[in-house]
Design a protein around this nucleic acid. Sequence first.
DNA 1: GCTCAATATAACTCAAGGTTATGCAAATTG
DNA 2: CAATTTGCATAACCTTGAGTTATATTGAGC
Lengths: 316, 316
Amino acid sequence: MQIDPNHLIILAAVVDEGGLTQGAAALGRSQPSLSRSLSALEARLGLPLFEKGRRPLIATELGAALAAQGRMIRAAAAEASMQAGLYAGGKTGAVRVAGTPVFMDAVIASMIAGFQQANPNVRIDQSYGYADTLIRDLQSGALDVALCPLPPDAVPEGLAFDEILQGRNVIACRIGHPLARKKTLRLSDIAPYPWIAPPTASPLYQDLKAILAEIEVDDFRVSFSGGSISAVRTVLEGSDSLTILPYSVLFMMRHHKSLTALDIRIRHAPRHLGILSAKSSSDRPVVRRFQRHLAHEFKSLARTITHQQQASVWGV
Amino acid sequence: MQIDPNHLIILAAVVDEGGLTQGAAALGRSQPSLSRSLSALEARLGLPLFEKGRRPLIATELGAALAAQGRMIRAAAAEASMQAGLYAGGKTGAVRVAGTPVFMDAVIASMIAGFQQANPNVRIDQSYGYADTLIRDLQSGALDVALCPLPPDAVPEGLAFDEILQGRNVIACRIGHPLARKKTLRLSDIAPYPWIAPPTASPLYQDLKAILAEIEVDDFRVSFSGGSISAVRTVLEGSDSLTILPYSVLFMMRHHKSLTALDIRIRHAPRHLGILSAKSSSDRPVVRRFQRHLAHEFKSLARTITHQQQASVWGV
DNA sequence: GCTCAATATAACTCAAGGTTATGCAAATTG
DNA sequence: CAATTTGCATAACCTTGAGTTATATTGAGC
């Protein structure tokens, strides 16, 4: 026996509202429409859903039992509507985001926290990776959003790149480091100190090699490598090691008052930190919202950095 | 946003079966039909339910979420179908049955037990009453089936009466009773013994009065009254009291070997025990089935009684 | 690049379900 | 008890959704 779910919804409405007229009003339809639908259901079942000859239309046992199912169906349909609404508003769904490890941990993690605070039903699937794998995953549809540095003219086919910060790197050390006090530093000054090396796959590693080549150090001493930002920070704080970090990463750690940057400008290929995403992935409202959130957060971060730098120029 | 439950069912089928073609097969419809229905749903939502450009038709997050609701709807509709089927087959529902207390307890209760054994999902609402209230409740629709004695020509308007047993009463006493051994009893022999009186509203009470009038006893001694069959039996077994009982009630208690009937025929108005029911209530399959069950049980009981009587005639 | 399999589209038909108008019967009321 | 009100059923009509078959289109795999 095949039963139309819509008929059960109508039945539930009529039973719950206490009559055809009220049920019709509740459903926004005409009374004859419901009357006929329920007649059709009764005919199909071959059994009465309502006591016949009773005016305030009282349900039979069967009618009451089927109305219960109708309520479930109505609830499920309403739930579906709500889900669709949430989804369309970017309030639910999953976002797959990845980026370079240090940057994700130091900068993006807190932005994700803010997003999840406002959108508790959104799932964030985070992972780590460098430009090449990020691009590949974006293009294959395995990733929604990636955060990484990229040269301005190297935006891959089918992807959008939204620049958010300058990709400037600095040499970081503990605040009490011998070099930290020096006003004028030459590159050769830093030669004696051991290095904390980024993973070799990291763009930072290339930058580090470039610096050391510039000061003509070939066999630099690596005191520590392979650690996350948390490990790197701990080691930096407890030693005179140096490392190379994106300025934004160092900036985010400014409140800890434990690390600082050497007053020396590093030259490297021009590039920007940016949000990389597949153009097609923006048709998912959550992803879109998440990207906008990141962009907004970065704009605000960039402002803060600018203020801070002006403040340090004008004193403090 | 209004969503058609049927669309969600289709969505669930396609997601679960892994494709439009398989989904169509599972639902017994054509593939283009589903294709268009889902397109309509997508259009209504303004959101894609399936990744576009993927051939084995893979659901998006939203599609998967809505499919879950579709599964619920499908389950509810299937449950409704099953309920309707059970109801039509008389396997579920409620039956309101009533009758005279002694008869219900001694005869009907075990028949109800048998019915419930075979139909665990049927609810039996039992109550007690005498002819007048039973008839009124049947006519008002407050009762489905009643069991009581009725004169053959007194079947009320709108009710059906199905005769099941002769409404013969007997005088009952304990097996060791002084009168139980006597072969030839006169009515006057029973005058000295005290009586257990049925409730005054009971037809048995009228019969008792008639008997006593026949033996010209006006102020008969009542040793006990107002008890259920269980109490009556206990008192009977422990004393030389007499009482009046339908023969069928006594017969049902034959295995206890504690009570017997005096060998004396009681005259009373002709009547039959029968199943009384509103003609309109038989449109409820459970009620119909329950009535048939009772009728069948009674037919078998009548056969047993006949055999037993023949056996007692031919010896034993 | 070709082939195969699966989905989308087209064109058409039919039935379900929407509407308004109206009839009819049960409840209510004086 | 008659009259009125109220609520459900029916009629007639129309729109829309959904079913069909035939066919175009497009990923996927070799």
